[in-house]
Amino acid sequence: MKMSRNLSNQDVLFMLHEMKGIGWKTIDELWRSCEQLNELCHRDHPVWKQLKWSGDKKARIQQHLNERFLEERLRIYEQNEVEVLTYADERYPVRLKEMASPPWVLYMKGDSALLHGISLAIVGTRHPTAYGLQATEKLASACSRKGMTIVSGLASGIDAAAHAGGLKGIGKTIAVMGTGMDRIYPRQNQSLYQQIRQDGLVVTEVPFGTPVHPGLFPQRNRIIAGLSVGTLVVEAAEKSGSLITADYAMENARDVFAVPGSIFSKQSGGTHLLIQQGAKLVCSEADVLEEYLHIWKDRSSKHPTQSEPDEEAFTASSTKINDRSEKDLSEEEANVMEIMTYLGQASVDDLLEKSKFSFGHLQSVLLSLLMKKEIIQVPGSLYIVNQRE
Rank of each mutant, 00 (worst) to 15 (best):
K109A: 05
K109M: 12
K109L: 03
G110R: 06
G110P: 06
G110H: 02
G110L: 04
D111C: 00
D111Q: 01
D111L: 00
A113W: 08
A113D: 13
A113K: 13
L115P: 09
H116L: 04
H116V: 11
G117V: 01
I118A: 08
I118H: 10
S119T: 11
S119C: 14
S119L: 07
A121R: 04
I122E: 04
I122D: 02
V123Q: 06
H127A: 08
H127Y: 09
T129I: 05
A130R: 10
Y131E: 00
Y131A: 00
G132I: 00
L133I: 13
L133S: 13
Q134W: 03
Q134P: 11
T136M: 06
T136F: 02
T136N: 08
E137L: 07
E137T: 10
K138L: 09
K138Q: 15
A140V: 08
A140G: 14
A140M: 10
A140Y: 12
A142F: 02
C143E: 02
S144F: 07
S144Y: 10
S144H: 04
R145K: 15
K146V: 08
G147S: 07
M148H: 11
T149G: 14
T149R: 07
I150N: 06
V151Q: 08
S152K: 04
G153Q: 07
S156F: 07
S156K: 15
S156M: 13
G157W: 03
G157Q: 02
G157H: 01
